[in-house]
C-alpha cells in the first residue's frame, strides 16, 4: 500500500506557482530521496503535504494511506501519522524544549530519557530553538520527531550544518525513525528526505530518488547513481533528460 500519494499537485504561494502538476508515490516501508536546486520547491512540497496555510493547493490531491487529506488541518495530518523536520523551524520563546518533546508525544515520552540517549540533555531547559546553532536545531527537530513517532517521516535537509561527529547521531536517529534495523519487507515506516549532500544516505537504506525541477519530479533513479549524475552533470542537465 502507498503511504503517501500526491496526484497532479499544483501549489502556489501568494499566487506564485511553485508546484505544477507534481506526482509522487511512496509505498509503505520505502524511503525516497528528493534532490533539487535551491528554490526549486522542495521545502514547499513538504509544507504543502503538512497543510500549511501559505502553501495553497490549487489543484490535485494528497493521500495518506489512501485517505484524501488535501483539506485536513495540519494537526489532523500529524495525528494520522505524518511528521516533518523543518529546514528552518521558528523559535518559540518561553516554551522549553522538554515541553515540546512532551507535547509531541502526547505525554507518552519522558524528555529526559529521550534526550539522554542522544546527548541532548543540556538543551531540555532551553527555549525551543532559541539561540540554537544550526546543528543543534537539526538534532532538536529529529528528537521531536522521535517523540512524535510518525509513520510517514518527512525530513528537510536533516544533515545540513551538522558536524561529522553529530552526523553519526543524526544518522542514528533517522535510522531509528525509519526502522533501519528491520528487514526491508518488515518496515512499516516510510520516508521522504531532502538532501543536497547525500551524506545521510550512509545511514539509511534509500530505495529511490528524484529531482524536483520546474514544479515537478523528474529523473527517477537509484539514489547514489542520481547523486553522482547531479555531481557530474549538474541539475540543468538532469532536468533535461526527463527520465
Amino acid at each position: 500500500m502507498d503511504m503517501l500519494t500526491v496526484e497532479d499537485l499544483w501549489v502556489a504561494i501568494d499566487d506564485r506557482e511553485i508546484l505544477t502538476g507534481l506526482n509522487l508515490r511512496i509505498p509503505q516501508g520505502e524511503t525516497h530521496i528528493l534532490f533539487g536546486k535551491n528554490g526549486s520547491g522542495k521545502s514547499s512540497l513538504l509544507m504543502a503535504v503538512m497543510g500549511f496555510a501559505r502553501y495553497q493547493v490549487k489543484q490535485g490531491r494528497i493521500l495518506f494511506r489512501g485517505e484524501d487529506i488535501t483539506h485536513l488541518p495540519t494537526y489532523e495530518r500529524a495525528r494520522l501519522g505524518l511528521g516533518m523536520s523543518f529546514q528552518r523551524p521558528p523559535t518559540i520563546r518561553g516554551v522549553k524544549t522538554a515541553d515540546i518533546l512532551r507535547a509531541c508525544s502526547g505525554g507518552q515520552v519522558t524528555p529526559e530519557v529521550l534526550a539522554g540517549l542522544y546527548n541532548f540533555t543540556d538543551f531540555l531547559d532551553r527555549e525551543v530553538n532559541y539561540g540554537f546553532s544550526g546543528g543543534e536545531i537539526k538534532r532538536s527537530e529529529l528528537l521531536q520527531l522521535l517523540a512524535q513517532n510518525p509513520s510517514m517521516v518527512l525530513l528537510d535537509e536533516p544533515e545540513s550544518g551538522v558536524d561529522l561527529e553529530n552526523l553519526e547521531v543524526v544518522g542514528e536517529i533517522i535510522g531509528r525513525l525509519l526502522q533501519k534495523e528491520r528487514r526491508r519487507q518488515n518496515r512499516e515506516k516510510s520516508g521522504l528526505i531532502i538532501t543536497h549532500t547525500g551524506f545521510i544516505m550512509d545511514y539509511i537504506n534509500a530505495d529511490q530518488a528524484y529531482i524536483l525541477g520546474n514544479g515537478r519530479l523528474c529523473c527517477h533513479g537509484h539514489p547514489r547513481e542520481l547523486l553522482n549524475d547531479i555531481k557530474k552533470f549538474g541539475y540543468e542537465e538532469c532536468a533535461r533528460c526527463r527520465r
Binding site: M50, F52, A53, P73, T74, Y75, A78, R79, G83, M84, F86, P89, P90, I92, I100, A103, C104, G106, Q144, Q148
Partner: peptide
C-alpha cells in the same frame, strides 16, 4: 503551524 505539525 509548527506546533500543529507536532499534533497540537
Amino acid at each position: 503551524e509548527y506546533l500543529m505539525a507536532r499534533g497540537l
